[in-house]
Design a protein around this nucleic acid. Structure first.
Lengths: 125, 125
DNA sequence: CGTCTGTCTTGACGTTCGTCGAATCAGAGA
DNA sequence: TCTCTGATTCGACGAACGTCAAGACAGACG
C-alpha cells in the first residue's frame, strides 16, 4: 500500500444523508449535525474559505496546488494541510496528474450545506 | 454600565458586506473571507449547529435558554458559552425578558452564507 | 429585605488547531 | 541511475477551543 495515498475524502457525504431540510424549518438531528458540522468547520478558516472558492470557481472546475499556494503568504506545507482538511471534510477531491495535483470541488455537499442554511426570502418580515 | 450586558452581537453582518456572489462563481476576497469564516466556524460544532437549528426553527422565531439547555448532556455554562459564540458570530440575537433569556436567529446572515455556498443545480453535469 | 431560580462569567483543565522547518515521497527528465 | 521540482508528511510550538465546577449577577416572589 502506498504510503502517500491519503488523497481520498475521509467521509462520503453524497450517499447517506437525506439532503437536509432547512435548519430553520425543523431541528437538525444530532446525527446529521455530527456529519455536517465538520464541513462547516472546514469552511471556518479564512484561508480554507478562499481555497475552496478558488477551487470551485476555477476555470475547468479544477485548480492546481501550484496555482493555489502562491496566492497566500503561507508555506507549502501549510496550504497542503488546509487542503487535506478540506479533503477530509468531503468538500474537495484531489487527483494527481503527472507532476501536479489538481483539486476539484464536490458540488453535492456544497448544495447540502446551502440547503441547510436556506431561509424563506420573507421569513420573518 | 451593567457588567452583564454582553448580549449584543460583536459584529454587524447586515451592513457592510455586499451580499456575496456564490463561492463557486468568483473568488472570495480575503476581506470577505475574514468576515464570513467566523460564522462558518461557529456553525462548525455539532452542538452549536443544533442550537442554531433549534432557535431558528422554534415556534415564534425564538427559543428560551431554559428549553435549549436540557436538550443536551452538557452543563448550563457550556451551553451558555456556545450561545455566546453564536452571538459573537452574528448568527443570533439575545433578549432578556424577566427571568428568562430568549434567542432569535438573524435570517440575513443565514441567507448570506447560503448564497455564498449556492451552486447552479446543473453546475458540472 | 432575603431567598430562590435562571443565566452568565471566571478560572482551570486537556485537546485540537494553525503554522513552520525538516524530511520524505512521486514523477519528469538528463 | 541521479537529480530536480512539486506536494505531502512528520514533529514541534504557541494559540484557541470545549468542557466543567465554582462563583456572581438579574429578576421574581415571599
Amino acid at each position: 500500500m502506498s504510503k502517500q495515498a491519503g488523497l481520498l475524502p475521509a467521509i462520503d457525504l453524497t450517499a447517506d444523508t437525506p439532503c437536509c431540510p432547512p435548519l430553520a424549518q425543523s431541528r437538525v438531528p444530532a446525527q446529521t449535525a455530527a456529519v455536517l458540522a465538520p464541513a462547516f468547520k472546514a469552511l471556518g478558516d479564512p484561508v480554507r474559505l478562499q481555497l475552496m472558492s478558488m477551487i470551485a470557481s476555477a476555470k475547468g472546475g479544477e485548480a492546481c496546488v501550484c496555482d493555489l499556494t502562491p496566492a497566500f503568504d503561507l508555506t507549502g506545507p501549510t496550504i497542503s494541510h488546509h487542503l487535506k482538511t478540506l479533503r477530509e471534510a468531503g468538500l474537495v477531491d484531489a487527483e494527481r496528474r503527472g507532476t501536479w495535483v489538481y483539486y476539484r470541488a464536490r458540488p453535492a455537499i456544497l448544495r447540502q450545506l446551502a440547503g441547510l442554511l436556506s431561509v424563506e426570502p420573507a421569513a420573518v418580515a
